[in-house]
């Protein structure tokens, strides 16, 4: 944390926050695990199950970054916010390169030629000779 706090702050404010984040992480893990065991992919569909599990993971990750990694206090610092911002943009772009290309190849009217190189070529018929 960039700001200095009094010992009282750490004892009365920060340590309870640590327990709170720990609780969020444990509950989040249990929720994801239980949802998988209950077969949410079958009930809600595969895509919704992924969105649900990733949403829980994002909540958990946000709690870690915000409190454990002190972003709550440090986000106002340009060095950190710029570094994080660039990283997030890069990460989203990188994921879109792969996921987006796959989605594009599955659009109606757009033939997927991803695996054409592994299929056997059609045998060419010899030209008829007179």
């Amino acid at each position: 944390m960039s700001d200095e706090h009094s010992p009282e702050y750490y004892k009365k404010k920060f340590i309870p926050l640590i327990y709170l984040v720990g609780g969020i992480l444990i509950v989040g893990t249990i929720i994801t695990f239980a949802a998988d065991k209950m077969g949410i992919a079958e009930r809600w569909g595969f895509v919704n199950a992924i969105i649900f599990a990733m949403s829980v993971a994002v909540v958990k990750a946000s709690a870690v970054i915000y409190i454990f990694m002190h972003l709550k206090w440090d986000i106002k610092l340009k060095t950190i916010s710029l570094t994080l911002g660039c990283t997030v943009i890069f990460f989203i772009g990188m994921m879109w390169l792969t996921v987006g290309s796959e989605i594009d190849s599955n659009k109606p009217g757009h033939s997927d030629n991803t695996w054409n190189h592994v299929t056997e070529p059609e045998p060419e018929t010899a030209p008829e000779t007179k």
């Binding site: 992480l25 994801t32 998988d36 870690v64």
Partner: peptide, 14 residues
């Protein structure tokens, strides 16, 4: 820890 938070659902659950 963050990396594992994402690895766990991706590799083990989904």
């Amino acid at each position: 820890d963050l990396v594992w938070i994402f690895l766990f659902p991706i590799l083990y659950l989904l």
